[in-house]
Design a protein around this nucleic acid. Sequence first.
DNA 1: CTTGCTGCGTACGCTGGCGTATGGATAGAG
DNA 2: CTCTATCCATACGCCAGCGTACGCAGCAAG
Lengths: 204, 204
Amino acid sequence: MKPAAPATEARQNLTVEDWARAALDTMAGGGLDAVAVEPLARQLGVTKGSFYWHFANREALLRAALELWERRETADVLARVGDEADPYERIVKVFKEANAGYRSGRLYLAIAAAEDHPLVSEFVRRVSERRMAYLVECYEALGFDPARAQHWARFAYATFMGNLQIRRDTPQLMPTGAPFNEYLKLMIKTLIPRDGLERPPAVS
Amino acid sequence: MKPAAPATEARQNLTVEDWARAALDTMAGGGLDAVAVEPLARQLGVTKGSFYWHFANREALLRAALELWERRETADVLARVGDEADPYERIVKVFKEANAGYRSGRLYLAIAAAEDHPLVSEFVRRVSERRMAYLVECYEALGFDPARAQHWARFAYATFMGNLQIRRDTPQLMPTGAPFNEYLKLMIKTLIPRDGLERPPAVS
DNA sequence: CTTGCTGCGTACGCTGGCGTATGGATAGAG
DNA sequence: CTCTATCCATACGCCAGCGTACGCAGCAAG
């Protein structure tokens, strides 16, 4: 009935997740449109015959890939820094992770670039909202009132999204080594104001 | 010889720039891959026959479109705020323009998403470098030393690139009306520190 | 050994977009 | 009026990718 564990493991027997992983890799490189069935099959060493056994059509592959992506984004990224007690350090970790994990960032940009696709926009929205909500929580845990936490979270999120963009489009404008650490320190120092609680600036 | 001014103007006689404009519009909506010859021709009310008279191939259209884009970005965007005397107000204007001109932002994101294309990456690099250089000049005019101007300019640039991304991918996370003005004010206040000169923070 | 299911290969038709060849219409030059 | 250059239409071949039909090997149950 069910093979469960491949006995000899000589038989490769591709799974749905294998295809989804390959699709995400291709996306990170050439965008959503680059995810084509036949090239992907060639890359995996099989033919379309395999693909259309596992999936109904290309749309189903995209769905599987996006679901895998969403799971990675929520479970992995957020859970890794979730066990940090200090909310300040949580934000710092998010920032450093965002600037270190370049592959993940490229993938986000590639997926988000296809927001005209209805399926994609759905996933992007959920992932982005979840990230923002996490940041908002962090800022609220720092003592910010909801409105200001919203603003600062959006501010911070925008900043490291922009850093991703800069790193991808114009890498030469993004420093490395010591200057980068200075830059990172500057952003963290600026985006996590310690005095945000006792001195509510008189906006309006 | 040269029609110069169309006498009756009944004859539309598409120009290279007409095609380039249409290509940019299509790009802003569906990305670079969406710029196809035949659909574009249909949209303009002609056939491929017209296209291949004006252009050698699709690549030539992309080049013309990107050149038009670069001209717009440099001449228009930068020249409009260039006549502002106060460097502080210049940065503020850039920020407000960046958050108001949504169409321009969408176009940038769409073009930058195709950085794997060698021709595109070339133009994106030039445009980005030019924008960054402008911001660096502004910060230096405010009294920042070159290194800090670089950092703050990159910081500010990343922030409004990220705002574009948020506005495109998750519009519901971007406030409108009064809350947006608060948000804008917060970013401006934060990204243009008045005390950046007399109090060089002890970084390293 | 046979039966049936699993996982994949092969071959086909179809569509959409690229590029080319060539013809046709129009307007201005002479 | 004729001629020519300009601008576009029509028609074709080509290819890549999607989806389908069907075939085939392997393996496990009976």
